[in-house]
């Protein structure tokens, strides 16, 4: 049977094909999705639901939890530390947005083609690559009242020493400034990429119409940078609400708890030496989650509009 050595390349007739073969296009995506979805449900989606549940209990993490209803949330209302944290979160949100215009300014400054500019761009971007822990350490030393670069610098102008991180009113701003350093670098790189794609013909047309400088920037460049601005906005908001590392490293919430934010306060309540109040911590996390949810909903809505547009 010599002819049988040639393999049959024709698809088998529909009636004889197996169930999988007949439903291949419908089933394959689910097979490919299954591991990712299972992992994600198990470690991300389900825990969110569990946190909501835990927030109605009083629980030290070891003994049996007791149901307390909304007691944790009622306690939050009278908790002055919670109020401070919430207020600080607001400061973070507003001031962190400065990364966007400053990042744009640096991008405009660096958007040239002189020799060595590539290296300059990389070095300006550098702070983003370093871990926030190291950024925190670096800035703690930068602010140090005895040998910090900041006070050495102020000294040159005959200004008095400022103990930024030791001052309850200044400390949060000092930490935000440290956080702005890598965040600005991130926004800068987004805008540098965006500027690369700006349509040169529109700029020429604008120049012919006599637009230049700030007017050109506002009416012609910035509208074209919209996708970059959107991403910068998303990552900056998320970054501001996620701030934890810097606070933990630089002040550990102090002085007098004045630099706490919700994410840090939650950790402190649930896991640090101040006790294991898992339920109360979960309630704080739920509040933070709900704040974040407003932004997430807005981001998803924008993305959804975009998807529909295609």
């Amino acid at each position: 049977m010599t002819y049988a050595t040639v393999p049959d390349r024709h698809p088998p007739s529909p009636g004889r094909r197996g169930w999988y073969k007949r439903n291949e296009i419908a089933v394959t995506p689910w097979l490919f999705l299954a591991p990712a979805i299972l992992f994600f449900l198990f470690y991300v989606i389900f825990p969110i639901y569990q946190s909501f549940t835990v927030s109605f209990y009083s629980w030290d993490g070891l003994s049996d939890p007791t149901y307390v209803g909304l007691e944790n949330y009622r306690e939050l209302m009278d908790d002055s530390a919670f109020e401070v944290s919430l207020w600080n979160n607001f400061k973070w949100l507003v001031l962190y947005l400065l990364a966007i215009p400053v990042g744009l300014m640096i991008a405009l400054f660096l958007n040239q083609t002189v020799t060595g500019i590539r290296l300059y761009k990389s070095l300006f971007f550098f702070p983003f690559v370093i871990s926030q822990v190291v950024v925190g350490l670096v800035f703690t030393w930068f602010y140090d009242p005895t040998f910090g670069l900041l006070n050495t610098f102020l000294g040159w102008f005959g200004l008095p020493t400022v103990n930024v991180l030791g001052d309850p009113t200044l400390a949060t701003y000092g930490i935000i400034a440290a956080g702005l350093w890598p965040q600005t670098a991130y926004c800068m790189i987004l805008y540098l990429t965006g500027l690369n794609a700006v349509d040169p013909e529109q700029i020429e047309a604008g120049r012919l119409d006599g637009a230049k400088g700030a007017r050109m920037l506002w009416y012609i460049i910035i509208p074209q940078l919209k996708p970059a601005t959107f991403i910068a906005f998303v990552v900056t908001i998320i970054g501001a609400l996620r701030s934890f590392d810097l606070i933990s490293i630089m002040t550990n919430g102090g002085p007098f708890g004045q630099t706490r934010v919700l994410s840090f306060y939650m950790f402190e309540k649930a896991l640090s030496e101040y006790g294991f109040r898992m339920g109360y911590g979960a309630a704080i996390a739920v509040v933070l989650f709900l704040i974040m949810l407003c932004f997430i909903a807005y981001f998803l809505w924008s993305m959804w509009k975009e998807e529909k547009g295609h």
């Binding site: 470690y43 991300v44 389900f46 825990p47 969110i48 569990q50 946190s51 835990v54 993490g61 998303v234 998320i238 609400l241 996620r242 934890f244 919700l262 994410s263 939650m266 950790f267 649930a270 896991l271 898992m278 911590g281 979960a282 704080i284 996390a285 739920v286 933070l288 989650f289 974040m292 932004f295 997430i296 981001f299």
Partner: peptide, 11 residues
């Protein structure tokens, strides 16, 4: 985009 803290206790 979720904050880490909402996952912390259960995870």
């Amino acid at each position: 985009f979720v904050p880490f803290q909402i996952l912390m206790v259960p995870v």
